[in-house]
Design a binder for these strands. Structure first.
Lengths: 140, 140
DNA sequence: CTCTAATTGAAAATTATCTTCAATACAGTC
DNA sequence: GACTGTATTGAAGATAATTTTCAATTAGAG
């Protein structure tokens, strides 16, 4: 995953953002994680790397990364707003209830379902959000 | 939809909850709405019916209703945590970005997708959440 | 009608997130 | 390697959302 951190860094730089130490710390944490983490968790872990880091910077960095599409928000019932590294362009998440591990997948066959719905309801479907909760192989 | 309100009330009573005036006001608002509403919006509308209502009670009532399964949470990127009346047992939502109208549907063909994923990832899928965003016929 | 436990609302507490602003550090230029 | 303009940072305070506490009220069983 060290590799992944470099990809994230490169992507940031390419877009004209400066690669600062605080950002590097946040990226390092995100690149590691299979799990979804909320801002506070990310903050805590990233401070192990760069202790002067401020929570505000975590929020700001996450905002940038979501906008660029490098990470994705995960919505959970309790304590909304966690984040995970998004691997493929558009993908969905399989979250383990037990350990929080996140598996991503993208090859879904939802398109057909959407077409039918468009016909039936008259809605123009513009985006979708699918999230699955379960238990990962290890936790079963 | 007045009918629906009575269904909600009946369900609450059956479960041993008292049918108070504040709760009735909240139920009335929820029974009406095609739209998803956040606690503050529900509060405001319900106060037209029962002015003494407190916001806290709205939160508490929503909590009970979600637990019973009479309403569902809708997750949106900005301002998480809206609620809609849930019609069928398990269903999904088609939310209009423009006017907030919510269309529910339940006959989805996701089961097949899930089976494949279980096989591929080893996860035991226990629950899922699907949300579609788009534009309703009127707003198009 | 009475009584008790559930429920309520006001206020205060907590938590999450955002804004402001002076100080700092990156990255390109010399 | 030092210089410089601009983006970025962190602390502190502001705002917003949600929860807790607690004394007063009320639904509904008897």
């Amino acid at each position: 995953m060290a590799l992944d951190k470099q990809i994230l860094e490169q992507e940031l730089r390419t877009r004209g953002y400066k690669l600062t130490r605080p950002r590097q710390a946040v990226l390092a944490v995100l690149a590691l994680g299979e799990e979804h983490m909320n801002p506070a968790e990310i903050y805590e872990r990233a401070r192990a790397i760069y202790p002067k880091l401020g929570l505000v910077t975590v929020y700001r960095t996450l905002e940038v990364l979501v906008e660029i599409g490098l990470i994705q928000r995960v919505h959970l019932d309790e304590g909304c707003h966690s984040y995970v590294r998004s691997r493929q362009g558009h993908s969905h998440q399989l979250v383990c209830k037990e350990c929080g591990r996140v598996e991503e997948f993208s090859d879904c066959e939802l398109e057909e379902v959407f077409k039918q719905l468009t016909k039936k309801t008259g809605y123009a479907i513009e985006s979708h959000w699918l999230e699955l909760l379960g238990r990962c192989p290890t936790c079963r």
